[in-house]
Design a protein around this nucleic acid. Structure first.
Length: 295
DNA sequence: CGGGACTCCTGCCAGC
DNA sequence: TGCTGGCAGGAGTCCC
């Protein structure tokens, strides 16, 4: 699940608990995630204070006072859970029972891969059944190989119809595929691309190049930019979308899945024309759209 | 080079 | 009930 709105939701949920706190213990499951754990990861976290949290595309960044930055990616099924310390003991019990499956209520679950204990006794747990997520540490996060080539933030000033026109010009792939390319725009995933294309009334099958025949902005591209921004803002406001895995750090679900117009709605009537939503496969991934409303 | 297929891993669901 | 196959939000790599 985790696309930009879900990562933003998790980051905003973690920030008040992590910011300004010192990590006093870091415990790892030892199981390999998408990438190997950074060398001496626990030791490099322990004793460090978290100065600031931010998000870039689908990556979460924790700047430490050691000069390093934790880079975290949720993959497909990663989630963070905060168990408040003594100050929030009530919440800790309620959540502990749910997320910690041991008899005492504080044993890590089978898919818990990182447990941080902070200097106020808050615990922060990273859980990831599919293990497509990862952690890394870097002195310069922006220069990290996974971040260096990213396109603009879709909610930032650099993401414009002019940018899309340049990125799409000469590109034969379908616009759906192009928007999933993190070098074109950073942070979109399958769900929000489907939803944004529907709102912009652009067919996911159309070649990207056909939307930018001259390499210059067009009204359609402007519509697409607006649709992407709107969808992302609405999804962030709703706390992201919970399909099966995403949760906020307090365990509650996001709500944007209630507002999907096409995603996961194959066969249901289109809200615009009433004809059935269609599902096709593009680059091996499901695409949902209305063949009538989207051209 | 662009673009598609394949890969990592587990959970879940539909269908038999 | 229990099995099997297909599918799932990401993104790097490998080929043509």
């Amino acid at each position: 699940m985790p696309e930009l709105p879900e990562v933003e939701t998790v980051m905003r949920g973690l920030a008040p608990h992590l910011r300004g706190r010192r990590v006093i213990a870091a415990r790892l499951s030892g199981k390999r995630l998408r990438l190997p754990w950074p060398r001496d990861f626990a030791a490099r976290l322990e004793g460090a204070r978290v100065e600031a949290l931010s998000r870039r595309a689908k990556f979460m960044l924790w700047r430490l006072d050691s000069g390093e930055t934790v880079i975290s990616h949720l993959g497909m099924s990663g989630r963070f859970t905060v168990l408040p310390g003594p100050g929030g003991a009530q919440g800790a019990r309620a959540l502990g029972e749910f997320y910690f499956h041991g008899p005492a209520g504080d044993q890590p679950g089978p898919h818990d891969h990182l447990v941080l204990t902070l200097d106020d006794q808050t615990r922060v747990i990273y859980t990831d059944p599919r293990r497509f997520g990862f952690f890394d540490l870097a002195a310069d996060a922006a220069a990290h190989p996974m971040l260096a080539g990213l396109g603009p933030e879709p909610l930032g000033d650099e993401f414009t119809a002019a940018h899309l026109a340049r990125a799409f010009h000469g590109r034969r792939a379908p616009v759906k595929t192009a928007l999933l390319d993190q070098k074109v725009v950073a942070g979109l995933g399958n769900i929000y691309v489907c939803e944004a294309l529907f709102r912009a009334r652009v067919s996911p099958r159309r070649a990207a190049a056909a939307l930018a025949p001259t390499g210059r902005p067009t009204p359609r591209l402007a519509r697409l930019v607006t649709a992407i921004r709107e969808i992302l803002r609405e999804a962030i406001r709703a706390g992201g979308s919970t399909i099966s895995d995403h949760a906020r750090v307090d365990g509650s679900s996001g709500g944007f899945q209630q507002h999907f117009s096409v995603y996961g709605r194959e066969g249901e009537p289109c809200g615009g024309c009433g004809r059935p939503i269609r599902r096709i496969t593009q680059s091996g991934r499901g695409t949902f759209y209305c063949p009538r409303c989207q051209r």
